[in-house]
Amino acid sequence: MTVTLRYFAWVRERIGRAEEQIDLPADITTVGELVQWLKARGPEYAHAFAKADVIRAAIDQTHVKPQAAIGGAREIAFFPPVTGG
């Protein structure tokens, strides 16, 4: 399954790109598993996700928890806690 990953703020800066398309391995079923898989992709990902419990995620533009099922997601985003307002 192909999924678009999007990164924002310092997660984007550390990874060095704003978005990418990946072929999701069949054994990755939750957002938390995806984070662990991404961390192993290279030092920039390991750096971005070093404090995995700080990173927030959204599936198809809705906030989700790490245990959320990826299901048929088209777009998964990772970002720091929000600081607007």
């Binding site: 924002f8 703020a9 310092w10 959204a58 906030h63 985003a77 970002f79 720091p80 806690p81 929000v82 600081t83 607007g84 307002g85």
Partner: peptide, 22 residues
Amino acid sequence: KTSAPFWKKETGADGVGMWVDA
């Protein structure tokens, strides 16, 4: 402030940008 996906980066007099912590 706690759910809309905005992120602030402040630039100081030294020109260095710092992401604002939640």
